[in-house]
């Protein structure tokens, strides 16, 4: 009989991703309401030390899978190991962060184990001991409620939507046997720039630029983002123009972000851009066109030249520090 809530937690550069802690916090609340336990799973090369930290977020049991080949982004290997762990522990539900890895792993596990999965959930609750999820469709134009059926239910949660809350868990660490299974994807080259760049989907503050930047010089946005401790995003027009990499694109065909503060600079507010940022807590738009569509979705609007306003905001925020 399936029992308990499992959360697959991801480490990046030695620390847990924020969304993993969000998933644990939500998982803890769900486990409590079921009166069942919370199990965390951590996979990587040497993870038993950092894994202990998860007791702070309510993990009763922390299953640790250690192998050099599980380190980093290794969905094929992690899939094989995770399927074994799920079969062994038989959780009622398994939560993942909706990161690249979480989305890929959950889809693979869902197919292998023939269990239901809801991706990119904005809310999760329990009815009749089963998971019910809210998720967006059609670039945010619709929010759907879906029931996940079957004995095991999977869900990935969108970053920056759920609160992180500390709780006390027994935190028993259990190292599991690792059987990597058939590995049919071979890493041949890794270009890792050791940068302090904050992952867009994890950032609390995002400053985005659009076509109005009129060239690859995004330094005024970089400065504001750095002052806030955030990241720089871009509209598709800025990406298509070659000013920013595709990985910075926010929107329907880019990343979906949900920061505390989103500052849109010289972005008109096309539906496809809105789809990627409308769930941000506070949205500020700077646009010199008073009729710009972006003002419909923002909380505060500044009708002015971004090249004047952005540096001035940066100066003021520096004074706060």
């Amino acid at each position: 009989m399936a029992q308990g809530v499992m959360v697959v937690a991801e480490l990046f550069n030695g620390s847990f991703k924020k969304v993993s802690l969000e998933a644990l916090s939500k998982g803890k609340a769900l486990a409590d309401s079921l009166g069942e336990s919370l199990v965390a799973v951590v996979m990587g090369a040497a993870v038993s030390e950092p894994a202990k930290e998860l007791a702070k977020y309510g993990a009763d049991l922390i299953v640790v899978a250690q192998d050099a080949d599980l380190e980093g982004y290794r969905p094929c290997q992690q899939h094989n190991v995770l399927v074994d762990i799920i079969n062994d522990k038989a959780p009622r539900m398994v939560l993942f962060g909706a990161t690249r890895q979480g989305k890929e792993l959950s889809a693979n596990v869902s197919a292998t184990l023939d269990v239901g999965l809801a991706q990119e959930c904005l809310d999760l609750f329990i009815e009749d001991q089963k998971l019910v999820a809210k998720r967006t469709l059609f670039g945010g134009k619709i929010i759907a409620t879906v029931d996940i059926e079957g004995d095991t239910q999977l869900a990935t949660i969108r970053p920056n939507v759920f609160e992180i809350t500390e709780a006390t868990g027994a935190g028993v660490v259990e190292e599991c046997a690792v059987n990597l299974g058939t590995v049919n994807v071979t890493l041949i080259e890794e270009k890792v720039e050791v940068s302090s760049k904050i992952e867009l989907t994890e950032a609390d503050y995002i400053v985005s630029g659009g076509r109005a930047m009129d060239g690859p010089d995004f330094s005024i946005l970089e400065n504001l983002a750095a002052t806030l401790g955030g990241a720089v995003g871009a509209s598709r027009n800025a990406v298509d123009a070659g000013w920013r990499p595709q990985t910075d694109q926010v929107g329907q065909t880019g990343k979906v972000v949900s920061p505390k503060l989103y500052i849109a600079c010289g972005i008109s507010g096309a539906m496809q851009h809105i789809a990627g940022m409308s769930t941000s807590d506070v949205i500020v738009a700077i646009n010199n066109d008073p009729d710009a569509l972006i003002f419909k979705t923002s909380d505060y609007s500044i009708v002015d030249d971004l090249f004047d306003v952005v540096p001035a905001i940066t100066e003021e925020i520096k004074k706060l520090a």
Binding site: V115, L117, V132, I143, V146, D147, A285, F295, K296, T297
Partner: peptide, 28 residues
């Protein structure tokens, strides 16, 4: 299907922005 649609709704797009007025300093 192990994922079943229960209901859909169209989210409220908000009331639009509060326009900040004044000099650049005041706005900021």
């Amino acid at each position: 299907a192990k994922v079943k649609r229960v209901d859909y709704f169209v989210p409220d797009m908000g009331d639009g922005a509060e326009m900040l007025d004044g000099s650049t300093d005041e706005i900021i």
